[in-house]
Amino acid sequence: MVPTLAGVILLIFFLFRAFGGDPAEILAGQVASAEQIEAIRRELGLDRPWTAQLWIFVRGILAFDFGRSWITREAVSDIFLTRLPATLTITIPIVLLEVFLALPIAMLVAYFRGSLLDRLATALSVGAMSVSFLVYIIVGQYLLAFEWGLFPVQGWGDSAWKNLLTYAPLPVLLAALVSLAPQIRLYRSFFLDETKADYVRTARAKGLSEPAIMAKHVLRNAMIPVLTNVALLLPGVFAGSFLLEIFFSIPGLGREVYLAVNRSDYPVIQAFTVYLAVLTMLVNLAADVLYRLVDPRIQFR
């Protein structure tokens, strides 16, 4: 994990350094004199060699002190920590729903493979996936919140419970529904791949019924690719939840980054990218451990 983290840090550093605009000019704004820009440059340490700047960058990450946002002057680490809960409140329920809803439905669909139901489900899900996530949110927000008033249109509160129960449901529901079709298709293919295996033929030769084979033998083997896939889920979940934050004005990490992009607030973008990369790596590690627990062929190193 360490070399990957080092790589991420290097990538972000060089990306902004080589391709980004001059931070001093951005910070100073439109009407700044040359001396003002110079002063800011010195303050930010931009007159030092790039190795020193890299060290400042790394130190900032390790100390969890990223300086201040160029726009709001708030400490970046503070911004991160205050926005994190909101993102988690949406993201975690989405992941849980995605996996635990899709799995049993996929198993059922795989069981009835080839039948009219299966083909219908496939056709419907292809169509459903061809409509942009945005449309679902726009229409969902309009119908369910605006027109029918089942959920609040936007907003966020202070108490975690209120957020979870009042403000989170609509976004979470929309995200889960949209991802349901592709997840089911994916899990269905895992199940189908397993049903073609030799050990299924052995199980039949032993006299097991089809449902028993599916539940006892196939499921456990299919869990292996499911778990591997959880790690790959994350980028999509983040993308979804970030969009939702923007739509529903939820004060989370995603919305913050979006604002930062529009305002060229480099420290915020850089810090969030690195920290979320770390988070992703940790989740991957956890999934890896789980994977080794489920598959006895893999030995612990």
Binding site: L11, G20, A277
Partner: peptide
């Protein structure tokens, strides 16, 4: 290693970072 670096960064963040850099940079 390069692959791991790119995939550890959540896609949308990388997109945002790139967008920020490309728009405000040279």
């Amino acid at each position: 290693w390069v692959y791991n670096v790119f995939t550890s960064i959540p896609g949308i963040l990388l997109v945002f970072a790139l967008a920020a850099v490309l728009r405000s940079g040279w």
